[in-house]
Amino acid sequence: MSLTPPKSDWYKPAEGAEKLWIGIALVWCFVMSLMMPYWHFKGKQNSQGEAYAVTAQAFQERTDQFVEDNQVGEYNGVPLVAPAPGSDVYLVAQMWSWYPVLQLQQGETYRLHVSSVDLQHGFSLQPMNMNFQIMPGYDHVLTITPTTTGEFTIVCNEFCGIGHDRMIGKIFVE
């Protein structure tokens, strides 16, 4: 019993159904372990954590330059920016907005740099439900390829203070 010391000869290998289950469970664990490297090479959705150290000021400057070079309009008072396919795209997370609004092309690949100039934020792209952590001091590079068109909403999903729920951004794909 589990409340008293076991018999002195308790050490014995697993047998029967118990042994079979341990074997099956171990195989399942190997399958799950191998799925991740498999997807890393063959799958299209990976979070490789590509990142570069950056100060808030430097990242804001790069973003401002990016907006100046590529702005095509405005959306609710925020610059609407249409970068060239394959180019570097910048997105600033701050309390409590995403800057600027992006206009991307379907099937093209972009290097999306996202960083925060204050607290930690969460980049949650809806309705795709793709989520990434955004950190101050880290230029997080997401190499993305929009495959569907329409209006996409960026929700902040890391708590960042009282206005957290109103931190909403937009990406348009055409």
Partner: peptide
């Protein structure tokens, strides 16, 4: 907690 699947779950 699977590395890539976490993309569609993190902080939701």
């Amino acid at each position: 907690g699977t590395q890539q699947i976490n993309i569609i779950a993190h902080n939701t």
